[in-house]
Design a protein around this nucleic acid. Structure first.
Length: 311
DNA sequence: AAGACGAAAGTGGTTGA
DNA sequence: TCAACAACTTTCGTCTT
């Protein structure tokens, strides 16, 4: 299971981490600047959920130090509608001392509040729906906070460029997540995303193309090796099998056996081969089903690889 | 009996004219 | 816009373990 998945939705669990799950080192440090928990020995990011800065910040001996004091409120988050910086005008018609405003001033403030609200209403309404869907989808897909935040940034850019107009919010959210999950090396297939959202593959693919074109983004084709760890996980295969599968994939890549092939099928085929080599055999049906493909495709891929690599 | 195999026909997406 | 095309899927009968 992905470490991020374990801790993502239960930040209180963070305080109980004593050793690194990767190298078993005990030197775990908090990087408050990016809000992550990191192993100082091997560099594994144990959680990129927000780690609250609990260090003292009340001492300031010089003007410089005073100016450096930066901790006011939560860290900024693109997942919050206003990045966590509220700028709304208080509903109570009181001044800073709690005294009621004069009728004349109260009227002015009401007017300002109304204007402010009206200006932000359309963007706010869109974002509140979009960000809620983004969080829901990402959590269903098991995507970590780093991917969620960046997807939110992509969506905001699309919104600013008025790309959402006339398209579905959910589709653009799904497309943002698809894009960022790929660019972060944690690809989810269109099929998986479509299954988790209420839209079909075609619709999401269309939104994805729009975002890529309009924001001038170009991603390389998905690398089959990035599919291996998750698939192996779902099949309960050891890391040795994973490493072997990736090795086979590299060789297949070299012989140009991967061009134009579905990366998920390739990952499935090489894992199938590697699992047999290591005595962790899984049936074709099991592997194909987990990879969301068919036995026939799995067979075609694995026969081809086996033949060309003389395995 | 379960799993693997492969033929045949059909589907959906890409490409290039 | 359309046809050609490769990859993929579905279905099903047969073979192997």
């Amino acid at each position: 299971m992905n470490i991020n998945e374990i801790y993502l939705d239960q930040p209180e669990g963070l305080s109980t981490i004593q050793t690194c799950p990767e190298c078993s080192g005990s030197h775990i440090i908090s990087d408050y600047a990016c809000g992550t928990l990191v192993c100082a020995t091997c560099g594994l990011v144990i959680s990129d959920n927000y780690v609250l800065d609990d260090q003292p910040e009340w001492r300031a001996f010089s003007k410089e130090e005073r100016n450096k004091k930066s901790r006011i409120g939560d860290p900024l988050s693109p997942l919050k509608i206003d990045y966590g910086l509220g700028t709304t005008i208080d509903k109570r018609n009181q001044d800073g001392y709690g005294n009621l405003l004069s009728p004349r001033r109260a009227h002015r403030i009401n007017r300002l509040r109304w204007l402010h609200d009206r200006n932000h209403r359309s963007v706010t309404r869109n974002l509140s729906k979009a960000l809620a869907e983004l969080k829901r989808l990402a959590s269903q897909l098991g995507l970590p906070m780093s991917v969620r935040s960046e997807a939110a940034i992509i969506y905001r850019k699309a919104l600013r460029k008025r790309l959402i107009r006339g398209r579905s919010i959910d589709g653009m959210v799904a497309a943002s997540l698809y894009l960022v999950s790929r660019s972060h090396g944690l690809p989810r297939t269109l099929r998986e995303i479509a299954a988790a959202s209420r839209l079909d593959k075609k619709e999401i693919a269309r939104c994805y193309r729009v975002i890529c074109n309009e924001l001038n983004l170009k991603l390389p084709p998905t690398d089959a090796t990035s599919m291996v760890p998750r698939l192996a996980n779902d099949l309960g295969l050891s890391t040795a099998v994973q490493r072997r599968a990736i090795q086979i994939l590299k060789d297949a890549e070299r012989l140009k056996l991967c061009i134009g092939k579905n990366p998920m099928s390739l990952a499935a085929a090489t894992l199938y081969i590697a699992a047999i080599e290591f005595g962790e055999r899984r049936t074709q049906q099991e592997v194909a089903e987990t990879a969301q493909t068919t036995e026939v495709t799995l067979r075609n891929r694995y026969k081809e690889i086996k033949r060309e690599l003389n395995l």
